[in-house]
Amino acid sequence: MSRLLLTARTGWTLGLKLVLAYRFEALVQLVSASVVALLNWSLWTAIYQGRTMVAGRTAPEMTTYVVVAWVITTFYGTQVDQDLSARFREGLIAVDLLRPWDLHLHHYFRDLGRAAVALVLTTLPLCLWTSGLLHLRAPERWQTWPLFALSLLLAHAISFGFAWLVGVASFHLRNATGLAHLKATIIGVFSGALIPLDLYPPALRGLVLALPFQGMSHTPANLFTERLPTAALWQPLLVQLGWAVALFWLGRLAFQRALRVLEVQGG
């Protein structure tokens, strides 16, 4: 247990420090995420001209969904796949393995540190200005807030778990760029970060809701807009948790297998 705490503390600290070394990037993220959120908001505001309901949602519900779903990507969006594949490619994995830590867990906590900084420097400022200017709908029930926070943490775990697997895959395939594009596309289409997933045609909807990616934006944003029946609030959280755990263990196994066949590149 104390070992886990140590890994958590040192990983978190390193994540904080590394991302703070590039504070400027937080500003860039803030601006670019603002633009996309604003664009999506304008689009849906235009669609609602003269209508009160689209796909069972009122205009404030819809705009709140699209803004929240996009804003939280700045929190859970991780680059651990690229970090990991770069460590493999440059042979620096040999250095990472010289520490008495579980490298997989270490990276999880490190990315949590990264996410914490992003929350303060990017996500919260985004929330502030969008909720002030775009007339978003605040949750009516107080319980929504802690559940949303929990859901966001699980969204991050799913995002990390998937990115880690992509990173390990890039070690086997030795092609990080292609996989990075693939990952971005998958998350863009299947997470619900751009469009609510229940707007998809029924056949596709069944598929995307059965995949882990819906736990990234779709679940938290639906929770936030209180689209779910009060009695079943725990259900989507449990689905998120299930996927987070499954991806985590898959990532562990894949990484251990990769280490067994590791060749350190570059002498």
Binding site: L97, R260, L262
Partner: peptide, 8 residues
């Protein structure tokens, strides 16, 4: 790298 535990 084998002595340091990096390679199997």
């Amino acid at each position: 790298k084998m002595l340091t535990g990096v390679l199997r």
